[in-house]
Structure formats: C-alpha cells, structure tokens
Computed example of a mutant assay.
Amino acid sequence: MEALLVSTGIVALAEIGDKTQLLAFVLAARFRRPWPIVAGILVATLVNHGLAGALGAWLTSLAGPQVMRWVLGLSFLAMAAWTLVPDKLDDADARVSRHGVFATTLVAFFLAEMGDKTQIATVALAARFEAFWPVVAGTTLGMMIANVPAVFLGDRLAGRIPVRVVHGIAALIFAVLGVATLLGAGSRFGF
C-alpha cells in the first residue's frame, strides 16, 4: 500500500506543470474531445510506466543492496533538483497525426514521457519498493490525477495552480526519499 500511495503522490505533484500536462492542455484545446484524449493518456502511461517499472525491477536484480541504496538515494536527490526545473512543451510533442484523437494522444504522450521525470521516477520507485504493480498503478494514477483535470478544464486551470509551490513540495518529497534511502530507510527492502 505504501508503494501505491507514495508513487501516486509523487507523480501527481511532479506532473503539475510538466510537459505532458502542457500537452494535455494543447490536445484538449485542439480536439475538444476529452474522452479519447483521457483514454490515450491512460494507455500511453500504462505502457510507458510498465516498461519503466520493469526496468526498475530488473535493475534491483542486478545490483547488491548497498549499491542500490546509493544509486536510488542519489537518484531521488537528482529527481528533487530536476523537479524544480519547469518543463516546456516542444513543438514536436504537440504535432497531430492523421490517425485521430486517441492515436495522436497515445503516441504523443508515450513519446513525451520517454526520459521524462515521471518515467525516471517510476524506475526508481519500482527499484526502491520492489513492488512492480503497486508502483505502476500509483504512477499511472498520479498521471491521471494531474492530467485529466487538464483535459477537462484546459487553460482555465493552468493559471490558477501555484506550479512553483507544487514543484517545491514534489522536490521536497523526492529529497526526503533520497536522504532516507541513503541513511538506510530502505533496509527492510534489502538496501
């Protein structure tokens, strides 16, 4: 349960102001068909974070507990710093295909998430908690919590969320996880 809740909270906070949330705004404004956009976000996130979670689980099997403790602790601290850097939507992320709203959203979100904060966080969380399904479910839920309102409320919501404060909270959570991991809080998980 801890893996699910931590994963959901971290990703929901980290996603606010992220380029994929900006992409959700753009797609919602362009297509004005929220349900296929939401479905595309869900499928893209499940696939992307499923792969990231599998990578995290695989990395755990390769390295010893002490190495994993340091790698994960430093990764969480790096994520804390990265979360403070606001994202910008690339023109390439917002391009529309001729294959419809769902396919456009699916491809755009999957590609936008490659190497993104939330994908890297999913790798680290899956390695940290050694709980593939709860982490993937949590990070996916976090993405949906942040992006579904963006799809339905569009630009009206963007100006009312104190993105800087939310990013600060997410960075603090990543930093606490990083320090706790370095100090051995993950010892019950084997690192």
Rank of each mutant, 00 (worst) to 15 (best):
T139S: 06
A158Q: 05
L106W: 03
L177H: 02
G9Y: 08
M144C: 09
T105Y: 06
G138Y: 03
T60R: 15
V136P: 06
A57D: 02
A103V: 15
T105D: 03
L183K: 13
A180I: 01
G184H: 12
K88R: 14
S97M: 05
A103P: 00
S7R: 09
L157M: 02
W35E: 09
A94W: 01
L59I: 10
T140R: 03
I145N: 10
V96E: 00
A3S: 15
W82Y: 13
V71A: 13
L106S: 09
Q119F: 10
G186M: 11
V47A: 05
A112G: 10
F191W: 12
R188L: 14
A92E: 15
L125E: 00
V166I: 14
A103G: 00
F189E: 14
M68F: 04
L153W: 04
A54Y: 08
A185K: 09
T181A: 13
L125T: 01
A44T: 02
L55V: 09
V38A: 09
V26R: 12
E15N: 14
S97P: 05
G178S: 09
T105A: 07
I120W: 04
G154W: 01
K88H: 13
G115Q: 09
R69M: 15
L27A: 04
S187K: 14
W82E: 12
A81Y: 10
A158F: 07
G40H: 01
R95A: 14
F110L: 15
R128V: 09
M79F: 08
R128N: 13
G138N: 04
A63E: 11
V26G: 04
P65E: 14
I169V: 15
A112N: 07
L153Q: 00
T45V: 07
A44H: 03
G154V: 00
D87C: 00
L84R: 09
V38W: 03
A63P: 07
K117Q: 10
L46K: 01
R33D: 09
F129K: 12
A54K: 00
L89Y: 00
